[in-house]
Write a protein that binds this DNA or RNA. Structure first.
Length: 559
RNA sequence: GCGCCUGUAGCUCAGUAGGAUAGAGCAACGGCCUUCUAAGCCGUGUGUCGGGGGUUCGAAUCUCUCCAGGCGCACCA
């Protein structure tokens, strides 16, 4: 139920619309003061009365009922308290009847959202910097599905560029088939690093030739390339499986090789293409941006050219409602440029393209550098977190069954959660101390709360439904209010492309539940209190699991 | 130089289309397990909300300006 609307409909102020009252409604600092508040200051001038007086008069006129049980006027605020008994029954009913679908909606029915995320580069292992796009994109993927959208997850492979010529050149000089087969993507990456450190001019030119050979369809060059691609995809699928990440398309840059010409032709037809310093550009000076390069002076296409072709292809293929690009803020300008070019080409859907931009990761001693060996590999981080979880289990709960499975859920959860807990725009300085901290505002805390709830429920046996007319105490009510807020949290999270809202929600709910859990005995309570508390526990557990699962985090029964 | 982003407690960060005494976690210190999992709970302390102007009854939030840091700015992706 929309309480704000309910309240707004029952208040009349001369010369003030119901909409304005609705949007003026705010939240008091604490539950003792009230659940909703109307600040009356802004009405003072029009009514020529003091806010205190206005609040008092509105209070005198307002009729309380089964929904709003109490109204008070304090210092120019009109405070409302909802009927806690009714709200509690309504919320628990909603959560328990929806179960794993609580908070889900059909808002997205019939609409498709494309999400371009994670986007592996062939031959480059994931380092910690790839975590954000992967888990952000994955969380948005799950969230939009939950809200009823048709979602297309796209891994826009980085499989085009002169570096692949270098790679093949390095392999031909120094590589060994069996070693590469055994060492997988890291072995390939080592070859690439070696090339960058050791290649002379002769090798550089050889590399350009290999790149040309790939492009012209040379059999051997393409076989090697395809082999590297396979090793790369085998590697990343291992990581995606651990992180619970899915894709519907692996159409990468090469996929657009033959789809760029029509875009270039259209640009030319529409007189948007202009020669400058030998290159073909779209001039964006009018919009305060540097030109967007479409063709190099040697006629080769560029990153932007492929992105334009990809946008057209996605629109044609999926007819998206939104197309998201989950890419770090480094590329803010690039996306502003291609979105603008698509708009100038007359595509009204250019407004549906969204760059979901996020902050950068660095190490405590500065930026990462693969060449200098200053790099933290993602799989190492995941493995260390799982190991740490395993150690803690051995220490605290050694008789647990499925220790391995639990350690994995806990460890992987910590990695994902750590990357999603803060606003995505914030830069991250990676530190093992931080990801390996399993206390406080972490997924482990939330999972632990679930384990507690599970434990209580497993000991309770069968219990009846939500008792009617039960009036919740303050601790219980705080949990109820938090449960009630889940659907709107999801809506806001989707609206802002901000999974951190869900992560924070989960911690808030867990905190409120733990306070309740400590203060109110569940199993030894009697009658309605016991039934209510068991239902509250069940509803909390369901909602915490829903929240974490939207982030790609599993919840063990015990831990 | 120009553009975008960030600046809140010792550290990491919240702060809901301006609203009541600015909140969490970590770290520190002190409590709480013969009763539902102590990966937990309770308590203690800390703030020129980067500085300064402006708008407003009211500004961490809007605006201007300055400062600091990050990122980007033509043939890489």
């Amino acid at each position: 139920m929309d309480y704000k609307k309910y309240i707004a409909d029952r208040i009349e102020i001369d010369g003030v619309s119901a909409d304005e009252i609705y949007s003026s409604l705010a939240f008091p600092p604490n539950t003792e003061t009230g659940d909703y508040a109307l600040p009356c200051f802004k009405f003072a001038k029009a009514l020529r009365k003091s806010p205190v007086m206005i609040a008092q008069e509105l209070k005198d006129r307002y009729k309380t009922d089964g929904v709003i049980s109490e109204v008070s006027a304090v210092n120019g605020y009109l405070n409302f308290k909802v009927n806690k008994t009714a709200l509690a029954a309504e919320v628990l009913g909603a959560v328990l009847s929806s179960g794993e679908r609580y908070g889900a909606s059909d808002a997205g029915n019939g609409k498709t959202v494309c999400i371009d995320y994670s986007s592996v580069n062939i031959a480059k292992p994931f380092h910690i910097g790839h975590l954000s796009t992967t888990v952000l994109g994955s969380a948005l993927y799950k969230l939009f599905k939950y809200l009823g959208y048709n979602v297309v997850g796209i891994n826009h492979l980085g499989d085009y560029g002169t570096q692949f010529g270098k790679l093949i050149c390095a392999y031909k000089h120094w590589g060994d088939r069996q070693e590469v087969e055994k060492g997988g993507i890291h072995a390939i990456n080592d070859l690439y690093v070696r090339f960058n450190n050791e290649a002379d001019e002769a090798m550089e030119s050889e590399a350009r030739e290999y790149f040309r050979l790939i492009e012209s369809g040379d059999k051997e060059a393409n076989e090697i390339f395809e082999w590297f691609k396979k090793l790369t995809l085998d590697y990343v699928r291992g990581i995606y499986d651990k992180l619970g990440v899915n894709f519907d398309s692996y159409a990468g840059e090469r996929f657009y090789s033959d789809k760029m010409q029509p875009v270039i032709d259209e640009l030319r037809d529409k007189n948007l293409l202009k020669e400058s310093e030998g290159a073909q550009i779209v001039d964006l000076e009018e919009y305060g941006m540097p030109p967007c390069l479409i063709l190099r002076s040697d006629g080769a296409t560029l990153y932007a050219t492929r992105d334009l072709a990809a946008a057209y292809y996605r629109k044609k293929t999926y007819d998206f409602h939104k197309c998201l690009y989950v890419v770090a803020y480094q590329q803010n300008l690039h996306f502003r440029q291609i979105f603008k070019v698509l708009e100038l080409m007359g595509n009204e859907w250019a407004k549906d393209l969204v760059h979901v931009s996020y902050g950068m990761v660095s190490l405590e001693d500065g930026a990462m550098s693969t060449r200098k060996g200053k790099v933290v590999w993602l799989e190492d981080v995941i493995n260390k977190c799982i190991e740490k979880a395993h150690c803690i289990i051995e220490e605290k709960n050694p008789q647990l069954e499925n220790k391995k499975e639990i350690a994995e859920k806990v460890g992987v959860g910590a990695v994902i959660f750590g990357a999603l807990y803060n606003n995505k725009i914030k830069d991250i300085v990676f530190s093992y101390d931080k990801v390996l901290s399993f206390e406080g505002e972490t997924s482990v805390y939330v999972q632990y709360t679930c384990a507690r709830a599970n434990s209580v429920l497993s000991k309770s046996g069968e219990f009846s439904g939500v008792p009617e007319g039960y009036s919740p105490n303050p601790q219980e009510f705080e949990v109820i209010k938090q449960l009630a807020a889940f659907p709107e949290t999801l809506a806001e999270s989707a609206d802002k492309y901000e999974p951190s809202y869900i992560a924070r929600y989960a911690v808030d709910l867990a905190q409120k539940f733990n306070k309740f859990y400590i203060d109110c005995k569940i199993l030894t309570a009697e009658g309605d209190a016991k039934a209510f508390r068991l239902n509250l526990t069940k509803a909390t557990l369901l909602t915490l699991k829903n929240a974490l699962s939207l982030l790609g985090i599993g919840v063990p029964e015990k831990m």
